[in-house]
């Protein structure tokens, strides 16, 4: 007997492509969040690592101004976001590769862009939680935050989202090359640590950085940090926390958007061509 292959929509059944895409985004996102909830290691990194670091610094920063503590908290919060994005995004992607799960995914009608969006959405949620906890830890240790203006909210949000997206994509080439959970767990997050230390808490405390000058306003880890400090710690920008002159102009926001667009483009191409082997279709 010949099988009837006719359905109302040959690829998506009764679901519209848009609905199927959204459902798949949700699938990847919820799956990633559940995996973190079920793993003490991952959960303790999200909850404890950057916030714990801030508490530790805070105790050692007696006699330091509230602006300086706040700047450090932002730098540490951005570090936490980078670490979490590199570690959790990379670890889960490596697990799928190591278990040959992409062979199964390729036999299913999955939108690669839904896969990437779902993973990134969960990464942003986790990194966002860690960032908020770090800011709260900063407040607990004496940090004083203040919004520079209403526009500060979208700019800080943009800076944070771009940070997450950028560093998740940075993890991808390493994971695709190594295809190994151990590399994802131990080696890839080192990028965040090296970046954090080499740039003086991501550009928050420039006197601790071996890198001097204007370049700290352009690096993908220091630019969003310094933008966020400018908007969340108005006193910090004026009180020599942020030499050189802070990244405040629209050109820096444009550069930030550029980093985000570049990361999304590279991430989409890598996932679509290397993992889903679909050429250039998203």
């Amino acid at each position: 007997m010949a099988a009837d292959t006719t359905t109302s929509n040959p690829v998506m059944g009764n679901a519209t492509p848009a609905w199927a895409w959204l459902t798949q985004v949700r699938a990847f996102s919820e799956r990633c969040l559940r995996e973190v909830r079920n793993s003490w290691t991952m959960l303790s990194i999200v909850i404890g690592l950057p916030a714990g670091m801030q508490l530790l610094y805070g105790q050692r920063l007696e006699g330091i101004s509230g602006e300086m503590i706040a700047s450090t908290a932002v730098g540490t919060g951005i570090f936490g976001a980078m670490y979490i994005c590199l570690y959790i995004f990379g670890y889960q992607l490596a697990g799928d590769l190591e278990d040959r799960r992409y062979e199964a995914y390729r036999s299913m009608p999955i939108f690669p862009s839904a896969d990437l969006s779902g993973r990134m959405l969960s990464g942003i949620v986790l990194a966002g939680s860690a960032f908020i906890l770090t800011i709260l830890a900063g407040v607990y240790t004496g940090a004083s935050f203040e919004l520079r203006g209403l526009m500060s909210i979208p700019i800080v949000f943009l800076a944070f989202v771009v940070t997450c997206v950028f560093w998740m994509v940075v993890a991808m080439p390493f994971i695709l090359y190594a295809q190994n959970e151990r590399v994802a767990e131990y080696a890839v997050p080192m990028i965040a640590i090296v970046g954090y230390i080499a740039t003086g808490f991501n550009g928050a405390n420039t006197e601790l950085s071996p890198i001097d000058g204007e370049i700290l306003n352009y690096l993908p880890n220091t630019l969003p940090t310094r933008l966020a400090i400018y908007h969340l710690v108005p006193g910090g920008a004026e009180s020599s926390v942020l030499p050189p002159v802070s990244a405040v102009g629209p050109e820096y926001v444009a550069l930030l958007v550029g980093y985000g667009v570049l990361a999304l483009a590279v991430g989409t191409v890598l996932l679509t061509t290397v993992l889903y082997r679909q050429g250039w279709r998203p």
Binding site: T23, R34, E35, P109
Partner: peptide, 22 residues
């Protein structure tokens, strides 16, 4: 290759039920 070790059986089923439109 299908099962996600860190999820429960039910969460695995839920993941694939969202992932595959059919």
């Amino acid at each position: 290759a299908l099962c996600l070790e860190r999820l429960t059986g039910r969460e695995n089923i839920q993941f694939y039920s969202q992932l595959h439109p059919m």
